[in-house]
């Protein structure tokens, strides 16, 4: 178990390093710098600016400095938001994005697993067909169509919820973004759960559990659900990636000051350090998720735990 986990961890660190290297050099070799738009910049000021940000040094020296700083959690100053460091910007936006992402992930998991189990238990009945037709639609409708549509219906026409915006401590602004973000992964999870649940319900060990006279609830919860969730666990990392991707548009549309907006703004502004910091944060989260998924696999299937 520990060796299994250590092996996964040993692969995660070089991956992160490779990402850092790749992104850093991609950005730095690209034409166009962050100060190019400000044409009126006199040469000496430009030189001072470059020196201040370390842009006058050889690339590999810059990379070395960058790595050293990142190791300390310092992503350097933002090129565009001059008064802030990238770390400060991320720290400001992160709680909002994390709240959004975790709520959406929780909703997608609970809703998807419940819908998938429901459909599997009513295989080929009307409820199953309806749920799966809804899932096809849920997978298809893009987040950036869904959220404005929800805002139009619930915000503009029904006026139940705010169209966009944000107030600290108010959950009303979160409802529609979380819904829009959760729906596509929810649909995928419900399909995955349904397929694997149908297989598990037909298995010999579920038949044994029923032969023991256990209640249907005990059969489903204790014997059927954990193995049926293995494919869902395999989808967790892609689901997180989907939610992160979705958060870029959701935060932009809903006007939530999370980190998703910084990535888009940073990309549009060619704010190297900001974008780099963001990619590192997102990649780290995904790699962490990968490790968590490995743990969940071990939890759901003892055979994984005992594999050396």
């Amino acid at each position: 178990m520990m060796r299994y986990f250590a092996a996964r961890l040993a692969w995660a660190l070089p991956t992160l390093f490779a990402i850092l290297t790749l992104t850093f050099f991609l950005v730095r070799t690209a034409p166009g710098g962050p100060f190019d738009e400000e044409r009126a910049l006199p040469p000496d000021i430009r030189r001072n600016l470059d020196a201040a940000y370390g842009l006058d040094q050889p690339l590999w020296v810059q990379f070395g400095h960058y790595l050293a700083r990142v190791a300390h959690g310092d992503f350097g100053p933002s090129f565009k938001y001059r008064d802030f460091s990238v770390t400060e910007l991320i720290a400001q936006g992160f709680p909002i994005s994390a709240g959004l992402g975790i709520s959406a992930m929780a909703l997608a998991l609970v809703g998807g697993i419940a819908a998938g189990t429901f459909a599997a238990l009513r295989r080929r009945e009307a409820g199953d067909r309806l749920a799966m037709a809804a899932a096809v639609l849920g997978i298809t409708v893009p987040t950036f169509v869904l959220l404005p549509f929800l805002a139009l219906v619930f915000g503009v026409y029904l006026k139940w919820l705010p169209v966009a915006g944000w107030e600290p401590g108010s959950l009303r602004y979160f409802v529609l973004p979380v819904l829009a973000l959760a729906l596509p992964p929810l649909a995928v999870i419900s399909r995955l759960t349904r397929a694997s649940m149908i297989e598990v319900l037909d298995s010999d060990y579920v038949r044994t559990a029923r032969a023991k006279g256990l209640s249907p609830a005990a059969v489903i919860w204790r014997h059927a659900l954990p193995p049926a969730l293995i494919p869902v666990a395999g989808y967790l990392a892609p689901a997180l990636a989907a939610i992160m991707t979705g958060s870029l548009v959701v935060e932009s549309i809903a006007g939530l000051p999370g980190i998703g907006r910084y990535l888009v703004q940073g990309a549009l502004n060619r704010d190297y350090t900001l974008v780099l910091g963001m990619v590192v944060v997102y990649s780290t989260l995904l790699i962490l998720m990968g490790l968590i998924v490995d743990l969940i696999f071990a939890l759901l299937d003892p055979r994984v735990r005992f594999r050396a």
């Binding site: 010999d204 060990y205 003892p302």
Partner: peptide, 19 residues
């Protein structure tokens, strides 16, 4: 079922819940 009336199945490999 399971108390007065019990059953043993053909394939013991797949008849026990793995987790």
């Amino acid at each position: 079922r399971g108390r007065e009336l019990a059953m043993v199945f053909q394939d013991p490999i797949s008849a026990l819940t793995p987790h």
